[in-house]
């Protein structure tokens, strides 16, 4: 169990973390979501004893982190942002060093290193130095050294940032596998990541917690608040003609339409009403369009995010 209450941290005039409280139960995989500068890393640094909070309490597995930091560190595995590693060390040297400094030695150390090479898929790179590895492999080595002492609690700061889609998929699978037996708090701003890996998500913005819920429930709540969205691809018309025609469909509140290079029109329609899809189909028939695609779009966590943190994000982009 991770228990955080009223955590606060300021850097000069910047309030990085502003009174955050949450709990992570044993065995949960919780996503920590927020835009750049929201305070995710700062919170994790306090959880892992790297930074001292200005105020607040942290408890991990019943251990008061601020009072007994060394004891708390024993139970934790922490993968900092961008998985920093010593470039000049070899992959095995890295894992052995991580193990030794955690008090492992002899046969136990050998077993753990082997197990980590196996679990994190490092067989192909065991002979290499960290400096020679691709970003994906570095991340795996980072995870392996985080897991070397078999901690029950894992704090992973953006474990998939900067990876290509294949690597992202692999790391997510790895995290899911690890998550079967461990308690994980992982931060990200790749939004679908939370849906892919987490059973619960905490959304943080400007140092404050703005949501704490099942990611799918958050998505549903957003859908009913902002309406449904459909994507269409239409042939036999132009964007200029389709736009007003779609706008006249009952229930439609917003229409975006663009001409595609192949002559078709791509449109995104937002509106309310259970029969919106049928209404759109009927309109297409009436206008004599060929409907190449009509697809309801689930609200993404991105929408959730925008709703919770209000448009101040959009202004920045």
């Amino acid at each position: 169990m991770i228990r955080v209450s009223q955590l606060r941290k300021t850097f000069g005039a910047t309030v990085a973390v502003d009174g955050i409280s949450f709990e992570v139960a044993e065995g949960e995989v919780v996503g920590f979501l927020g835009p750049n500068g929201a305070g995710k890393s700062t919170t994790m640094r306090m959880l892992t004893t790297y930074l001292d909070p200005d105020a607040g309490e942290i408890e991990i597995a019943g251990v008061d982190v601020l009072e007994r930091p060394i004891e708390a560190r024993r139970r934790l595995g922490y993968l900092p942002e961008s998985a920093p590693l010593y470039e000049e060390l070899g992959v095995l040297e890295t894992l052995r060093y991580a193990g030794r400094i955690r008090g492992l030695g002899g046969a136990r150390l050998r077993d753990r290193v082997d197990a980590m090479v196996d679990a994190c898929g490092l067989e192909k790179v065991v002979a290499k130095d960290v400096g020679e590895l691709s970003k994906g492999y570095r991340q795996r080595v980072g995870l392996a050294q985080t897991l070397i002492h078999d901690p029950d609690f894992l704090i992973l700061d953006e474990p998939t940032t900067g990876l290509d889609p294949n690597q992202i998929r692999e790391i997510r699978a790895l995290v899911r596998r690890i998550g079967e037996t461990k308690t994980i708090l992982l931060s990200t701003h790749i939004l679908p990541e939370v849906q892919a890996t987490c059973s619960r998500c905490l959304i943080i913005h400007d140092g404050k917690l703005v949501a704490d819920d099942d990611p799918n429930r958050l998505v549903d709540a957003t859908a009913s608040a902002t309406g449904q969205r459909f994507r269409l691809v239409i042939r036999g018309t132009t964007a200029a003609a389709a736009r007003p025609a779609l706008k006249r469909v009952p229930g439609v509140s917003d229409v975006e339409a663009d001409d595609l290079p192949d002559g078709a029109v791509a449109a995104a329609v937002t509106g309310a009403g259970d029969a919106l899809g049928e209404e759109l189909f009927r309109r297409a028939v009436k206008e004599d369009w060929v409907l190449a695609e009509l697809r309801p779009e689930r609200a993404s966590l991105e929408d959730v995010f925008r709703r919770l943190t209000h448009g101040d994000e959009e202004g920045d982009r």
Binding site: R45, T48, T49, Y50, I70, E71, R73, R74, L76, Y78, P80, E81, S82, P84, L85, Y86, E87, A98, I101, R102, G103, Q145
Partner: peptide, 14 residues
Amino acid sequence: KIGTIETLLTRPVA
């Protein structure tokens, strides 16, 4: 600079 200080100082070593 490379951030390894975070890993180093969050291990159970004084």
